[in-house]
């Protein structure tokens, strides 16, 4: 550091080893405008050692078979990738070292999604908060609410599995890709709320919250960056979630039904799905 520098670092002690409560106190101290009501800290710890621990569990072949299941062999690496603690190139190298290219391909293709969204972000920064294309739901953007209703942000929608996913997001800062799809579809299509409101909420809480991966995935669900809206039914949640998710009919009624029924309910202005 230059000698005539007037400013001093707030932390500059290579031997400093803070325990977690000291870290939290320091973050609060350095974040004077952070509302005190927000008191959740994730069990996921930020460090290179943690990233390498997760990487050590990588099994690309099993990943390819199970990744859509909420309890499947996904890596949990996204918060570390988001903040550059580990690079997609390093993760790819690890994957190629573990399995044949054919077995590793599905996993590397998923990593490529991140590269794809980042490329779009670099080239089209205006995509991040604006509809890339019109909605293909039979509704225009003005039919969607601007703000996220409080029952959603507080995990009190009354739809059991959705509340479980949101509660997990609030407490841990991480949910599985399929849970993200379910919550996003619920917000956009069941509640008819603009994807921007949902995206903003996710960015507050996801440790991997990334303007490109997040907002463009929301647009993919909403149909403003895809050919058709993404939606699901209770049977699909049942199929992909383990026993820990409440998928009973009586606590998730609005999600129950055939794809044709739900399509007709959510998108009444579109031609019936056959």
């Amino acid at each position: 550091m230059s000698d005539n520098s007037q400013i001093r670092p707030v932390i500059f002690d290579p031997k400093l080893r803070l325990n977690r409560s000291d870290v939290i106190a320091k973050v609060r101290d350095l974040s004077p405008n952070l509302a005190s009501v927000d008191d959740q800290v994730s069990p996921i710890v930020g460090s290179k050692a943690e990233a390498l621990k997760q990487l050590g569990r990588l099994n690309p072949a099993t990943y390819g078979r199970t990744r859509n299941h909420l309890d499947g062999a996904v890596t949990g690496l996204s918060p570390f990738v988001r903040h550059g603690v580990i690079s997609t190139a390093d993760i790819r190298d690890q994957a190629l070292g573990l399995n044949t290219p054919k077995e590793a391909e599905k996993f590397i293709q998923q990593l490529a999604w991140r590269e794809y969204w980042q490329k779009l972000y670099r080239e089209n920064p205006n995509y991040i908060w604006n509809d890339v294309e019109p909605y293909k739901t039979g509704f225009d953007a003005e039919h969607y609410a601007d703000d996220l209703p409080e029952d959603i942000s507080q995990a009190k929608t009354g739809v059991a599995c959705i509340d479980q996913f949101i509660a997990e997001l609030l407490t841990t800062g991480y949910i599985h890709n399929h849970a993200r799809l379910y919550v996003a579809a619920y917000v956009c299509h069941w509640r008819r709320v603009k994807w921007q409101a949902g995206a903003r909420f996710f960015l507050m809480h996801l440790l991997d919250g990334d303007p490109a991966s997040n907002n463009l995935s929301w647009q993919w669900v909403a149909s403003t960056f895809s050919h058709k809206p993404y939606f699901f039914n209770l049977e699909n949640v049942e199929k992909f979630s383990g026993d820990s998710v409440d998928t009973r009919f009586k606590t998730n009624k609005t999600l129950a039904g055939s794809y044709e029924d739900i399509y007709a309910r959510l998108f009444p202005n579109l031609e019936p799905k056959t």
Binding site: I11, L16, L18, V23, I24, K26, V27, R28, L30, S31, L34, D38, D39, Q40, V41, S42, I44, V45, G46, S47, K48, A49, P79, F80, H83, V85, T172, G173, R200, L203, M204, H205, L206, L207, G209
Partner: peptide, 16 residues
């Protein structure tokens, strides 16, 4: 609008 948990995660990565 970052929540406390996001800030703690980022701070930990930097501290590391």
């Amino acid at each position: 609008g970052y929540s406390l948990k996001r800030r703690v995660f980022i701070f930990e990565c930097a501290l590391d």
